[in-house]
Amino acid sequence: MKKLQKFLDIAAILLIVAGLYMAFMFAPMERVMGAVQKIFYFHVASAWIAFFAFFVTFVFSILFLVKQNFLFDDIAESSAEIGIMFCTIVLITGPIWARPIWGVWWTWDPRLTTTTILWFIYAGYIMLRKFIEEADKRAKFAAAIGIIGFIDVPIVFFSIRWWRTIHPNVVQKGGGGLHPDMLKAMLFAILAFSVLYAAMMLKRVRIASLARRIDALGENNG
Protein backbone atom coordinates (compact mmCIF):
# COMPACT_ATOMS: atom_id res chain seq x y z
CA MET A 1 0.00 0.00 0.00
CA LYS A 2 2.71 2.42 1.05
CA LYS A 3 4.78 1.50 -2.00
CA LEU A 4 1.85 2.00 -4.36
CA GLN A 5 1.20 5.38 -2.75
CA LYS A 6 4.80 6.51 -3.22
CA PHE A 7 4.78 5.30 -6.80
CA LEU A 8 1.55 7.14 -7.63
CA ASP A 9 2.75 10.36 -5.95
CA ILE A 10 5.97 10.42 -7.94
CA ALA A 11 4.28 9.34 -11.18
CA ALA A 12 1.70 12.10 -10.82
CA ILE A 13 4.34 14.79 -10.30
CA LEU A 14 6.50 13.57 -13.20
CA LEU A 15 3.51 13.30 -15.53
CA ILE A 16 2.34 16.81 -14.65
CA VAL A 17 5.80 18.22 -15.39
CA ALA A 18 5.78 16.35 -18.70
CA GLY A 19 2.24 17.61 -19.33
CA LEU A 20 3.42 21.17 -18.82
CA TYR A 21 6.15 20.55 -21.36
CA MET A 22 3.59 19.20 -23.81
CA ALA A 23 1.31 22.20 -23.27
CA PHE A 24 3.99 24.91 -23.54
CA MET A 25 6.64 23.50 -25.87
CA PHE A 26 5.12 20.68 -27.90
CA ALA A 27 1.68 22.11 -28.73
CA PRO A 28 1.74 24.97 -31.24
CA MET A 29 0.74 28.52 -30.29
CA GLU A 30 -2.88 29.27 -31.09
CA ARG A 31 -2.93 32.01 -33.74
CA VAL A 32 -6.04 33.91 -32.64
CA MET A 33 -6.09 33.48 -28.89
CA GLY A 34 -2.34 33.61 -28.26
CA ALA A 35 -0.66 32.40 -25.10
CA VAL A 36 -3.75 32.34 -22.90
CA GLN A 37 -5.06 29.38 -24.89
CA LYS A 38 -2.50 27.26 -23.02
CA ILE A 39 -4.80 27.32 -19.99
CA PHE A 40 -7.05 25.09 -22.09
CA TYR A 41 -5.05 21.87 -21.58
CA PHE A 42 -5.29 21.72 -17.82
CA HIS A 43 -8.70 23.41 -17.78
CA VAL A 44 -10.17 20.57 -19.86
CA ALA A 45 -8.26 17.95 -17.87
CA SER A 46 -9.66 19.34 -14.60
CA ALA A 47 -13.19 19.34 -15.99
CA TRP A 48 -12.74 15.76 -17.15
CA ILE A 49 -11.50 14.61 -13.76
CA ALA A 50 -14.23 16.53 -11.92
CA PHE A 51 -16.95 14.78 -13.92
CA PHE A 52 -15.21 11.44 -13.54
CA ALA A 53 -14.88 11.94 -9.78
CA PHE A 54 -18.59 12.71 -9.43
CA PHE A 55 -19.35 9.64 -11.51
CA VAL A 56 -17.30 7.57 -9.06
CA THR A 57 -19.30 9.09 -6.20
CA PHE A 58 -22.51 8.12 -8.02
CA VAL A 59 -21.41 4.51 -8.58
CA PHE A 60 -20.17 4.01 -5.03
CA SER A 61 -23.27 5.65 -3.56
CA ILE A 62 -25.36 2.99 -5.29
CA LEU A 63 -22.95 0.25 -4.21
CA PHE A 64 -23.12 1.48 -0.63
CA LEU A 65 -26.92 1.43 -0.56
CA VAL A 66 -26.97 -2.09 -1.97
CA LYS A 67 -24.09 -3.65 0.01
CA GLN A 68 -24.00 -1.46 3.15
CA ASN A 69 -20.20 -1.63 3.16
CA PHE A 70 -18.71 1.53 4.67
CA LEU A 71 -15.62 1.33 2.50
CA PHE A 72 -17.89 2.29 -0.43
CA ASP A 73 -19.13 5.27 1.55
CA ASP A 74 -15.54 6.36 2.17
CA ILE A 75 -14.79 6.10 -1.54
CA ALA A 76 -17.89 8.10 -2.47
CA GLU A 77 -17.01 10.81 0.04
CA SER A 78 -13.37 11.00 -1.02
CA SER A 79 -14.21 11.20 -4.68
CA ALA A 80 -16.74 13.99 -4.10
CA GLU A 81 -14.18 16.04 -2.17
CA ILE A 82 -11.50 15.63 -4.84
CA GLY A 83 -14.10 16.28 -7.54
CA ILE A 84 -15.04 19.58 -5.97
CA MET A 85 -11.34 20.54 -5.89
CA PHE A 86 -11.05 20.02 -9.65
CA CYS A 87 -14.45 21.62 -10.22
CA THR A 88 -13.21 24.72 -8.38
CA ILE A 89 -10.16 24.82 -10.66
CA VAL A 90 -12.41 24.62 -13.73
CA LEU A 91 -14.59 27.45 -12.44
CA ILE A 92 -11.58 29.70 -11.74
CA THR A 93 -9.51 29.01 -14.85
CA GLY A 94 -12.56 29.26 -17.12
CA PRO A 95 -13.21 32.95 -16.40
CA ILE A 96 -9.45 33.71 -16.55
CA TRP A 97 -9.44 32.34 -20.08
CA ALA A 98 -12.78 33.90 -21.02
CA ARG A 99 -11.82 37.42 -19.97
CA PRO A 100 -9.22 38.12 -22.72
CA ILE A 101 -11.05 36.00 -25.35
CA TRP A 102 -14.73 36.86 -24.90
CA GLY A 103 -14.15 40.16 -23.08
CA VAL A 104 -16.20 39.07 -20.09
CA TRP A 105 -15.40 37.00 -17.01
CA TRP A 106 -18.62 35.11 -17.05
CA THR A 107 -21.38 34.12 -19.45
CA TRP A 108 -24.46 31.99 -18.84
CA ASP A 109 -23.35 29.35 -21.29
CA PRO A 110 -24.64 25.77 -20.67
CA ARG A 111 -21.34 24.24 -19.73
CA LEU A 112 -20.31 27.05 -17.41
CA THR A 113 -23.70 27.14 -15.79
CA THR A 114 -23.94 23.36 -15.48
CA THR A 115 -20.49 23.21 -13.90
CA THR A 116 -21.54 25.88 -11.40
CA ILE A 117 -24.70 23.97 -10.51
CA LEU A 118 -22.60 20.82 -10.23
CA TRP A 119 -20.29 22.61 -7.80
CA PHE A 120 -23.27 23.63 -5.66
CA ILE A 121 -24.75 20.12 -5.65
CA TYR A 122 -21.53 18.57 -4.35
CA ALA A 123 -20.83 21.46 -1.98
CA GLY A 124 -24.24 20.59 -0.50
CA TYR A 125 -23.24 16.92 -0.43
CA ILE A 126 -20.09 17.68 1.55
CA MET A 127 -21.87 20.08 3.91
CA LEU A 128 -24.57 17.51 4.56
CA ARG A 129 -21.95 14.98 5.59
CA LYS A 130 -20.50 17.44 8.10
CA PHE A 131 -23.88 18.04 9.73
CA ILE A 132 -24.93 14.45 10.47
CA GLU A 133 -23.26 12.67 13.38
CA GLU A 134 -24.55 9.09 13.05
CA ALA A 135 -22.31 7.30 10.54
CA ASP A 136 -25.16 5.14 9.26
CA LYS A 137 -27.56 8.01 8.57
CA ARG A 138 -24.79 10.15 7.13
CA ALA A 139 -23.80 7.50 4.63
CA LYS A 140 -27.36 6.75 3.53
CA PHE A 141 -28.49 10.34 3.11
CA ALA A 142 -25.28 11.34 1.38
CA ALA A 143 -25.71 8.40 -0.99
CA ALA A 144 -29.17 9.68 -1.91
CA ILE A 145 -27.70 13.07 -2.81
CA GLY A 146 -24.81 11.43 -4.65
CA ILE A 147 -27.25 9.47 -6.82
CA ILE A 148 -29.89 12.14 -7.42
CA GLY A 149 -27.29 14.86 -7.96
CA PHE A 150 -25.51 12.94 -10.67
CA ILE A 151 -28.68 11.94 -12.50
CA ASP A 152 -29.71 15.58 -12.39
CA VAL A 153 -26.58 16.85 -14.16
CA PRO A 154 -27.50 15.89 -17.77
CA ILE A 155 -31.01 17.26 -17.27
CA VAL A 156 -29.56 20.55 -16.03
CA PHE A 157 -27.22 20.61 -19.01
CA PHE A 158 -29.95 20.04 -21.59
CA SER A 159 -32.33 22.51 -20.01
CA ILE A 160 -29.65 25.19 -20.04
CA ARG A 161 -28.56 24.30 -23.57
CA TRP A 162 -32.06 24.91 -24.82
CA TRP A 163 -31.81 28.21 -23.09
CA ARG A 164 -28.49 29.43 -24.65
CA THR A 165 -24.97 28.46 -25.82
CA ILE A 166 -21.58 29.98 -26.81
CA HIS A 167 -18.85 27.75 -25.29
CA PRO A 168 -16.21 26.51 -27.82
CA ASN A 169 -17.24 22.97 -28.64
CA VAL A 170 -13.92 21.09 -28.88
CA VAL A 171 -14.67 17.62 -27.66
CA GLN A 172 -17.93 16.91 -29.44
CA LYS A 173 -16.90 17.33 -33.07
CA GLY A 174 -14.03 14.83 -32.87
CA GLY A 175 -11.61 17.57 -31.86
CA GLY A 176 -13.07 19.87 -34.52
CA GLY A 177 -10.60 22.64 -35.40
CA LEU A 178 -8.11 21.41 -32.82
CA HIS A 179 -4.53 20.89 -34.07
CA PRO A 180 -3.48 17.21 -33.64
CA ASP A 181 -0.55 18.24 -31.46
CA MET A 182 -2.91 20.24 -29.28
CA LEU A 183 -5.12 17.19 -28.98
CA LYS A 184 -2.10 15.12 -27.91
CA ALA A 185 -1.16 17.71 -25.28
CA MET A 186 -4.74 17.73 -24.01
CA LEU A 187 -4.92 13.95 -23.75
CA PHE A 188 -1.57 13.95 -21.96
CA ALA A 189 -2.82 16.52 -19.44
CA ILE A 190 -5.87 14.32 -18.83
CA LEU A 191 -3.60 11.31 -18.26
CA ALA A 192 -1.43 13.28 -15.82
CA PHE A 193 -4.45 14.48 -13.82
CA SER A 194 -5.95 10.97 -13.82
CA VAL A 195 -2.86 9.64 -12.10
CA LEU A 196 -2.97 12.59 -9.70
CA TYR A 197 -6.62 11.75 -9.01
CA ALA A 198 -5.67 8.15 -8.24
CA ALA A 199 -2.89 9.26 -5.90
CA MET A 200 -5.23 11.67 -4.09
CA MET A 201 -8.00 9.06 -3.87
CA LEU A 202 -5.69 6.52 -2.27
CA LYS A 203 -4.72 9.06 0.41
CA ARG A 204 -8.22 10.42 0.95
CA VAL A 205 -9.82 6.98 1.27
CA ARG A 206 -7.20 5.95 3.82
CA ILE A 207 -7.89 9.16 5.77
CA ALA A 208 -11.60 8.35 5.79
CA SER A 209 -11.12 4.76 6.93
CA LEU A 210 -8.59 5.79 9.61
CA ALA A 211 -11.08 8.37 10.89
CA ARG A 212 -13.71 5.64 11.07
CA ARG A 213 -11.23 3.44 12.95
CA ILE A 214 -10.55 6.22 15.45
CA ASP A 215 -14.28 6.62 16.05
CA ALA A 216 -14.58 2.89 16.70
CA LEU A 217 -11.57 2.84 19.04
CA GLY A 218 -12.88 5.89 20.90
CA GLU A 219 -16.22 4.18 21.48
CA ASN A 220 -14.53 1.08 22.90
CA ASN A 221 -12.38 3.11 25.28
CA GLY A 222 -15.03 5.54 26.42
Binding site: M33, G34, A35, V36, K38, I39, H43, I92, T93, I96, W97, R99, P100
Partner: peptide, 10 residues
Protein backbone atom coordinates in the same frame (compact mmCIF):
# COMPACT_ATOMS: atom_id res chain seq x y z
CA UNK B 1 0.83 38.66 -26.49
CA UNK B 2 -0.72 40.86 -23.85
CA UNK B 3 -2.49 37.95 -22.27
CA UNK B 4 0.51 36.31 -20.59
CA UNK B 5 -0.75 37.74 -17.31
CA UNK B 6 -3.95 35.74 -17.59
CA UNK B 7 -2.04 32.60 -18.51
CA UNK B 8 0.24 33.00 -15.53
CA UNK B 9 -2.69 33.64 -13.19
CA UNK B 10 -4.49 30.55 -14.49
Amino acid sequence: MANFGYLFAG
